[in-house]
Design a protein around this nucleic acid. Sequence first.
DNA 1: CGGGAGGTTGACAATCGTCAATCAGAGTGG
DNA 2: CCACTCTGATTGACGATTGTCAACCTCCCG
Lengths: 238, 238
Amino acid sequence: VRKLEYRVALDDSDRGALLALPVSIRTVDRHQYLVREFELASHCSVLISGFAVRSKVVHAGRRQILAIHLKGEALDLQNSLLPLADHSVQMLTNGQVAVIPAEAILSLARDRPSVGHAMWLDTLIDASIFREWIANVGQRDARTRIAHLLCEFALRLKLAGLGERTGYELPMTQEQLADATGMTAVHANRTIRGLERDGFIDRAAPRSIQIGDWRRLAEVGDFDSGYLHLNRAEARLV
Amino acid sequence: VRKLEYRVALDDSDRGALLALPVSIRTVDRHQYLVREFELASHCSVLISGFAVRSKVVHAGRRQILAIHLKGEALDLQNSLLPLADHSVQMLTNGQVAVIPAEAILSLARDRPSVGHAMWLDTLIDASIFREWIANVGQRDARTRIAHLLCEFALRLKLAGLGERTGYELPMTQEQLADATGMTAVHANRTIRGLERDGFIDRAAPRSIQIGDWRRLAEVGDFDSGYLHLNRAEARLV
DNA sequence: CGGGAGGTTGACAATCGTCAATCAGAGTGG
DNA sequence: CCACTCTGATTGACGATTGTCAACCTCCCG
């Protein structure tokens, strides 16, 4: 499972060091917090199965979802260097995570330049996705925001083997979708229904997204996959 | 100048390696692009003087400012590992940058774990600020967004020796402020005037921000400096 | 069969964007 | 020194988007 850690960077046999990491596998329930904002965090987690989100709450009581994580992704690499958590990490569904002490991550990065390299790259891609999300919630209207997120899901779920570009099971409720796109659940619902009404998506059930014409959805969602920085193998797959 | 590179991490005398980097100092004009979205980038830049912004344009023609950089900050460390630029970097004022080949950065990070460490940390803090900005443009109303940004400026300009927490010269036009907070220039103006009218800030000139009561501005801006991950020395300074 | 979470819809209100006009100040050429 | 021009700031009127409140529905699960 931890193989995915270094999927992009070319590593020799310091895979051994990775596999020798002192991990503990935890089974975690839906809604359970792995890290809480403002708390000290001394561990990093890698998602083995299920879905997780990273979020912040603002003073007005509203919540912003910052990232949605699929199996195989590192959830909080930043805790290896930043002791104070600036956001929460929470499970969206039941699942399993591999918990690794921050010091172990750190010393591994220090002793194995290639691994440090791979983790830095992971952080850089994470940051690129954050940037796209800033643009998404900052400048696009509701329909474009939702369509953009649906496109991102299509590619990432496909890469994780959890769906196809032409359709997938949405791992989130509409309220969570709204929190991710900076709107209210009511408006998210209206927007989704609007996309359905105008033929951009089909939904057999509320959570089942079918994409008839990918190009058309990508266009209305102003979606360009560049910010995901897919490597050649990944780009071929989607 | 490049000392600021490793301000947070404890480095021994691989400062020598840093100083031996093949840099070329460029004088750049206001509005000049250092990197353009969708282009290949083979260099990284560190800002020596002046201000710079990172931005994306969306299909509707609107622009989102993703980050504002002060002297001493690295502008695009991501180009060392991600060849395709996912956003543009542009000067806000005249200034100087140190341009460094991406391979030099990479091999330095590989050969000097402490330096690699410091650059990873820089990326992690960058990402933390991006997350806060997602929450800012996603969940807060116009007044809160502007006040939040003004608070962030107060601390960061103070740390860079360019202002005080009680007042500073705003390095941006209102249109740029609007692009950073996801609103229109007209609305940004109204919001700033509103903050002034209600006594949160004073402005002798349009760009001169005076903060009478920091606590009050921080409260209306829902500002908590945690996301900047200031170290002890920095926290003492502000 | 009851309860609860999530989805859907309508009516209405608040926030924010658009369009357009005006104003102030800096720089420039004559 | 003075028009001239350009950028940026400011304001009003109006319209579009989005939020709020509230009701109801559907489906799953114990």
